[in-house]
Design a protein around this nucleic acid. Structure first.
Length: 112
DNA sequence: TTCGTGACGCAGT
DNA sequence: AACTGCGCCACGA
């Protein structure tokens, strides 16, 4: 079932460190689902709140919040990132915050 | 089954 | 830097 794919996606998102952001496509790749960036956005939309996923740490490959501006959700995401110390240069997130995971360590944490 | 839809990505202007 | 068009692909109506 597609539930399995979502679980893998959620697992990766849980590993994004506070103060860092990952791209949709990056999350998809790490979850073993290349070319499924859009599935990641869908997975987040239907994610059970009880999982307490750091959903705000997932942004577009342009380093920008993917949600439409002037929506409550957009502001919530930006707020959460600012609280974590993520710096913005206008709409863009400073590249210094882009997550660069250690792939070896990652393998020991994922349960595919 | 076909068709439209994205909280996407990327190359080309 | 900002826009645009297209490719991609799982989902659901």
């Amino acid at each position: 079932m597609s539930e399995q794919k979502y679980q893998q996606i959620y697992q990766v998102i849980q590993l994004i460190p506070e103060g860092s952001v990952a791209f949709y496509g990056q999350v998809a790749d790490l979850a073993g689902l290349p070319k499924h960036a859009r599935l990641v956005s869908k997975a987040l939309k239907v994610a059970p709140s009880e999982l307490n996923l750091p959903w705000h740490r997932v942004v577009s490959s342009q380093g920008k919040i993917a949600i439409a501006k002037n929506t409550p959700l957009y502001h919530e995401q930006k707020q959460r990132l600012l609280v974590e110390g993520v710096a913005f240069k206008g709409e863009r997130i400073s590249p210094a915050h882009y997550w660069q995971p250690d792939l070896f360590a990652l393998l020991t944490q994922l349960t595919h």
